[in-house]
Simulated assay, not measured.
Amino acid sequence: MSSHTIDTAMAKRMVEASAIRGASIIGQPGGWSVVLKLGMQEKPLGAQRSDKPRMWRSLDRCVDYLKKELHIARFELLDATNFSDVALVGKSREDASERLRNAHEAAAHDKWFREQVEIGLAEADDPAAEWVTNEEANASWAKKRAELVNPSPRESPRFSHGEV
């Protein structure tokens, strides 16, 4: 692979090693790109599986990506001189961002669910855990349902004729 751009994995390692001295967001026809400063050199952040600069259609998404993925929150330059929101000619992948967002949400839910299962298993293995039989649980819920259907007279509101 050519070295005209820096891919995200390499950029992450360089950020960890404090090798990136700065970042600039540059407006392009169709979106925004990022240029990383490495010593005296500047190289664009590359797109996945290619040596072309990565483009974001939204400045907010570009900044969000840099903050969350690369942990870069300060920028030396924001140049909107050449920015144009006119879409570039080529394949449009409008579904890609939605698909990726859904995949991230699913992964986050899976992580949360697995954590909840681990917590539940730890509670179940605790010798101090108190167990309730199915019959006891059914009886308790039957009692609660009956109370909701037929509240006791002292719990039900009393209205005189004409009150609302």
Rank of each mutant, 00 (worst) to 15 (best):
H4Y: 08
T5I: 12
A11L: 06
S18W: 00
I20Q: 06
G22W: 03
A23V: 02
I25W: 03
I25H: 03
G30S: 10
S33E: 11
S33T: 13
V34P: 07
G39A: 04
G39L: 08
M40K: 12
E42L: 01
P44V: 09
L45Y: 08
G46I: 07
R49K: 15
S50C: 10
D51W: 04
R54S: 08
R57N: 01
L59Y: 11
L59A: 02
R61Q: 12
C62E: 02
D64P: 07
D64F: 09
K68Q: 13
R74L: 07
F75S: 02
L77Y: 07
L78A: 04
N82A: 14
N82R: 10
A87G: 11
A87Q: 13
V89D: 13
G90D: 09
R99K: 14
R99E: 11
E105G: 00
D110T: 00
K111G: 00
K111T: 00
R114H: 10
E118S: 12
I119W: 09
A124Q: 03
A124G: 03
A128S: 15
A129L: 09
E130W: 08
W131R: 13
T133Q: 08
E135Q: 11
N138P: 05
W141P: 00
A142W: 07
A146E: 13
V149T: 14
S156C: 00
S156F: 07
H161I: 06
H161T: 07
H161L: 05
E163A: 11
V164S: 03
